[in-house]
Design a binder for these strands. Structure first.
Lengths: 125, 125
DNA sequence: ATAGATGCAAAGGGTTTGCACTTGA
DNA sequence: TCAAGTGCAAACCCTTTGCATCTAT
């Protein structure tokens, strides 16, 4: 069974509070603000356990190390900001992508990633 | 200036012959068939030089190490086979993805990845 | 009390780099 | 000739693991 330690509490809070996909490094830095002595290995282990529990799901973007976000938010895709590098969710997606594949190929699923500038980076520039 | 060695020749040939995005490992294995004593470091260096020369471009897919393909084939996206893991190009893409982003966000570019089974894996199963 | 969690440091896996040797131009 | 390229092994970076210690339950 899973124990609720101070470490796991601050990690869980980081995901709940920030509400966006976080890398281990981002979660680690957020956790360090509340618990400076926390180690990275602890964050890796806690996050992997949360994925096994089904509380987090991995979010893989091209060329980036895996991020994680709260499970159960339904079909959606991701936006990555070219300014700050952060990742955001967005809903909606164009239907019928299957027809784009080459003849004879079967499409089961898809991924869409948008790149640009998030609202904050647009305002700041 | 760039010299044409036997090593770089077999690496270049692998990309021309196979005509699909190749990881360093895939290019290394293809090169080894013609030149068994070739080292991985050579393949890494040759590929990085070919990217610098503009002859190859990186192809990053979620959760995968970088692949590379011939530059200059125009706007396209990638299909990854869940059976054999290989990556294929496809043309066409749904217009106007920008409207999907959250309010206040600016979209500059996008990536679409389709997953499923390639023609060969569909036939084999 | 005791199994699970932690922190540290060592081990892994993939990529890059230093160096002495080889080779294309 | 001689600088670019090569192969090997060491160095790196990120992630995982082993282990002694700590701590929720």
């Amino acid at each position: 069974m899973q124990r609720m330690t101070r470490q796991r509490e601050v990690i869980r809070d980081a995901f709940e509070r920030l509400g966006q996909p976080l890398s281990v490094q981002e979660a680690f830095e957020a956790a360090q603000e509340d618990l400076p002595q926390i180690g990275v290995a602890t964050v890796y282990r806690a996050i992997n356990d949360m994925v096994d529990d089904g509380w987090l799901v991995p979010v893989d973007l091209p060329g980036e190390s895996t991020r994680y976000e709260r499970a159960g938010i339904g079909h959606h895709h991701h936006f990555q900001c070219n300014g700050c590098g952060r990742v955001f969710d967005f809903e909606g997606c164009p239907g019928d992508l299957g027809r784009l594949a080459p003849d004879g190929f079967e499409v089961d699923s898809h991924e869409i990633i948008l790149y640009g500038r998030c609202a904050r980076c647009v305002t700041d520039s």
